[in-house]
Design a protein around this nucleic acid. Structure first.
Length: 627
RNA sequence: GGUUGCGUAGCUCAGCUGGAUAGAGCACCUGCCUUCUAAGCAGGCGGUCCUAGGUUCGAAUCCUAGCGCAAUCACCA
C-alpha cells in the first residue's frame, strides 16, 4: 500500500477529532514539491470553514496533532495553506527492504481475467511500415501491461488476407511477374508482393488516363451507354464546379469511376469472384502469394521482438459474419432494402444507418469484424473482453461495431475496447504511398540498428565482447530506442516522427535508460554480499527521493493498465533514471567508509536496476548489462 | 455541413480525478572525466498554457462560445 493510502484514514480520523464532520474525500494528499521541505502534503483549504482560522494557523494546528499522534511523521511546516509533512527515514528504509524482498515488485500476475489483445492486423498486399510499428509496439506493450495487472492475455491479430486488394497483387504478378519468387529474386516475400501491388496501381493509372483522354475526345470504343453518360455527367459537373472543395470531390469520384472502367480492374474483380467460387488456380496462387507475405512478416516480427498466440484470418471469419447478419435479420435487429442490401439503423443511438451486406450479398469490413469477434468468444469461452489496437481513423467503425454486437445480444460486447491511437506524421507531413514517403519497417529497423552500432563503437565500452554479443547489443539499443521513441508519447495523440530524433541516444530516450541499467549491472558485478538495509541508516536527499520513486511503481503500473498507456511507464522509467543518475553522481559507493551506507546504496542500485528492467520489459524493450 | 479528437517554450512532448512560482528532452550558452561506464551530472536562456466568457477560496485542467488543425460521415478497408 502506498503512503497516501496508508495515511489517509488516520488523518481523516484526527481531522474529525479536531473539527467534527469532515468527509474522507476532503483529505487531499499530494507529493511535496521539491522546493519545499517535507515528503507529503495535506491541502488545508477544505478545512478552513470548520477551523475558523487562517490557512497558516490551521495547517500548524493540524501538523502539531499529526506529529503527536502518528509516529511515522517526524516534522511539519505550513506554506500558504499547504501542510508539508516529513516522514521518518526509517519508514523509507523499511519500504526499500520490502521492495528488495519482492522480485516481482509491482507486478500482479494472478491472471484473474482472460483478455484478448489484437494488434498489427496487416493487409497481405504490402509490407509493414512506420504506422504499423506504432500499432505493434503499442499492442505488444499493452498486452504485457495487462498481464501484470492480473490478466491472462491472448495476443492476436486479424489478417486481412482476402478481398480485392489481394487480387490486385495477384493479377499484376500473373501479368508482369514472369514467375518471380522470393527465392529467385532474393526479395523478401512481403516486399515482392507489395511490388506487384504497386505494379497493378501503375497499370491501372495508365489505363485510366488513356481512357479519360479517349473519352474526352469522343472516342468511346464500344463502351456501354450508361458509363458514357456518367462520364460526361461528371465531366460537365467538374467544369461547372466553383469552389475547390467540390471540385476535389468530383475529381476523386471521376477517378474512382475511371479506375472501375479499366480492364485490369475488371480482371481483378473477376479474380475475386473466382476466389470466392473456390477456383482452383486462383486459390492456389492466393495461397502461394500469401505464404510469401507471411514469411516476410514473420521475419519482421522476429526483428521487432514481438509475438502472437493466435492468428485469425478474415478468409475464415467472413462467412460467420454473414451468418450472423442473416440471424440479426431474422431477429429484426437489421433490415433489408429493396435492392437486397442489409442495413442496421443506429439513428436511435445518434448515429446513422450502416451497411452490413452488399446488394450482391458479399461481405463488407463490418461483416467480417462481427464474425471475427463472435469466433473469438467461441474459441475462448472464458474470454472477458477484447482490446482492439487500431488507429483513431476507425473510431466510428468501432463505435458501430460494438453497438451492433450489443444489438445482436452478445453480453460481452460491453467488454470490447477500441485502443485508439493517433497517426504518425513525418516532418514532411503525412505518409503517402503515392508520393513514396512511406517509411518501411524493415528499412527503419536496419537504420536504427546501424546507428546504434556506429555510436556504440564510438563509445568503446565493448572490448572483449564476442561478435555475436556485439550484434545483439546493437540490435537491443537500436530497437530499444525506436520502441521507446514511439511509446513515450500518449497513444491517443497524433505524433511526429523525426528520423533524426528517433536514433538519438541522449536525453529522454531508450538508450539513456538502457545505459543506466548497464551502469548498475557493472556496479553490482563489483559488489559482493549485499545484505538487507539497516533501517537506522542515515539517508541522503537523493537517496530518499529515489526510494520514493521506487514506491510509486505499483501505482504507475495500475494506471498504465487502466488507461492502456505504455507512455506512463516510459515517463516513469525516465524519471527514475534521472533520479538515479543524479544519485550516482552525487554520492560514491565503493569509496563510502560507512558500510551500512554502502550496503544501502547497493540495495538501492539493485532495486532501481530491477525496476528499470521490469518497466522496460513492459514496453517490450530489453536492457543490456554492458553498453 | 454533422460528429469526434487535438491546440502548453524555437522544435518534440509531460502535466493523474481542479491546488503552491506550469515541467522535461532537443537546440543554444557555462562549468564537471588521474574517483564506481561523461550514452552522464550541475547550471543558464526560453511561456498570452489558441482566444473570450463562466464555475471556484483556487483553472493548463471543469463548462459555454469562437478560431485553427486533423480524422470521420462510402455497396473502401
Amino acid at each position: 500500500m502506498n503512503l497516501e493510502a496508508q495515511l489517509t484514514p488516520s488523518i481523516h480520523k484526527i481531522l474529525q477529532e479536531l473539527y467534527g464532520d469532515i468527509q474522507i474525500d476532503q483529505v487531499q494528499l499530494q507529493k511535496t514539491r521539491k522546493e519545499f521541505e517535507g515528503d507529503i502534503t495535506l491541502v488545508v483549504f477544505p478545512f478552513l470553514k470548520q477551523s475558523k482560522k487562517g490557512p497558516e494557523q490551521t495547517g500548524a494546528e493540524i501538523g502539531e496533532k499529526l506529529l503527536a499522534e502518528l509516529n511515522i511523521i517526524t516534522g511539519h511546516n505550513t506554506v500558504k495553506g499547504f501542510l508539508n509533512l516529513t516522514i521518518s527515514d526509517q519508514y523509507w528504509l523499511s519500504s526499500l527492504n520490502t521492495i528488495n524482498d519482492n522480485e516481482a515488485f509491482g507486478l500482479d500476475r494472478s491472471a484473474q481475467h482472460l483478455l484478448m489483445v489484437e494488434y498489427s492486423s496487416p493487409n497481405t498486399n504490402k509490407p509493414l511500415h512506420l504506422g504499423h510499428l506504432r500499432n505493434i509496439f503499442l499492442g505488444h506493450a499493452v498486452s504485457r501491461i495487462l498481464e501484470v495487472n492480473a490478466n491472462e492475455v491472448v495476443k492476436t491479430q486479424i489478417i486481412n488476407d482476402r478481398g480485392i486488394h489481394i487480387c490486385k497483387s495477384m493479377l499484376a504478378w500473373q501479368k508482369f511477374g514472369n514467375g518471380e519468387t522470393p527465392a529467385s529474386s532474393g526479395l523478401k516475400g512481403d516486399k515482392l508482393v507489395g511490388k506487384y501491388y504497386v505494379e497493378f496501381d501503375k497499370a491501372m493509372r495508365e489505363e485510366s488516363k488513356a481512357l479519360k483522354d479517349a473519352w474526352s475526345t469522343g472516342n468511346y470504343n464500344g463502351a456501354d451507354q450508361a458509363a458514357i453518360d456518367e462520364f460526361n455527367g461528371l465531366m460537365s459537373k467538374l467544369s461547372q464546379s466553383e469552389d475547390e472543395k467540390t471540385q476535389k470531390a468530383i475529381e476523386s469520384k471521376l477517378k474512382e469511376f475511371l479506375n472501375n472502367q479499366t480492364q485490369v480492374m475488371h480482371d481483378a474483380k473477376e479474380m475475386l469472384r473466382k476466389w470466392e467460387a473456390n477456383d482452383e488456380e486462383v486459390y492456389g496462387l492466393w495461397k502461394t502469394m500469401n505464404g510469401w507475405v507471411y514469411e516476410g512478416f514473420d521475419e519482421t516480427y522476429r526483428a521487432m521482438g514481438v509475438e502472437f498466440d493466435h492468428l485469425y484470418y478474415e478468409s475464415d471469419t467472413f462467412i460467420t459474419g454473414k451468418d450472423l447478419v442473416e440471424k440479426g435479420l431474422n431477429q429484426r435487429v437489421f433490415y433489408r432494402k429493396d435492392d437486397g442490401s442489409v442495413w442496421v439503423d443506429l439513428t436511435n443511438e445518434g448515429l446513422d444507418h450502416k451497411l452490413l451486406l452488399r446488394s450482391d450479398g458479399t461481405a463488407v469490413y463490418m461483416t467480417q469484424d462481427i464474425g471475427t469477434a463472435y469466433q473469438r468468444f467461441l474459441d475462448y469461452p472464458k474470454l472477458n473482453g477484447i482490446v482492439y489496437t487500431v488507429g483513431n481513423e476507425q473510431d466510428y467503425h468501432f463505435k458501430v461495431l460494438f453497438l451492433i454486437l450489443a444489438k445482436l445480444g452478445f453480453e460481452w460486447a460491453k467488454n470490447c475496447y477500441h485502443l485508439s491511437y493517433g497517426m504518425v506524421d513525418l516532418p514532411s507531413g503525412k505518409m503517402k504511398s503515392r508520393e513514396g514517403t512511406v517509411v518501411d519497417a524493415d528499412d527503419l529497423i536496419e537504420e536504427v540498428v546501424n546507428k546504434a552500432k556506429e555510436m556504440t563503437q564510438e563509445r568503446g565500452h565493448i572490448e572483449g565482447m564476442s561478435e555475436v554479443e556485439k550484434e545483439e547489443l546493437y540490435h537491443m539499443i537500436g530497437l530499444g530506442g525506436l520502441k521507446y521513441y514511439l511509446l513515450k508519447v500518449d497513444p491517443k495523440k497524433r505524433m511526429m516522427f523525426d528520423p533524426a530524433e528517433s536514433v538519438d541516444l541522449n536525453g529522454n530516450t531508450g538508450p539513456f535508460i538502457q545505459y543506466a541499467h548497464a551502469r548498475i549491472s557493472s556496479l553490482l558485478n563489483k559488489a559482493d554480499n549485499i545484505q538487507s538495509v539497516d533501517e537506522s541508516t542515515e539517508l541522503h536527499e537523493s537517496e530518499k527521493s529515489l526510494i520514493k520513486l521506487l514506491n510509486d511503481y505499483p501505482e504507475v503500473i495500475k494506471e498504465a493498465g487502466n488507461s492502456y498507456s505504455p507512455a506512463l511507464i516510459a515517463n516513469y522509467a525516465y524519471e527514475l533514471v534521472k533520479g538515479y543518475n543524479s544519485f550516482y553522481q552525487s554520492v560514491s559507493i565503493f569509496k563510502e567508509e560507512n558500510t551500512q551506507k554502502q550496503n544501502m546504496r547497493l540495495v538501492l542500485s539493485r532495486n532501481v536496476g530491477k525496476v528499470i528492467k521490469s518497466s522496460m520489459y513492459l514496453l517490450g524493450i530489453e536492457v543490456p548489462n554492458r553498453m
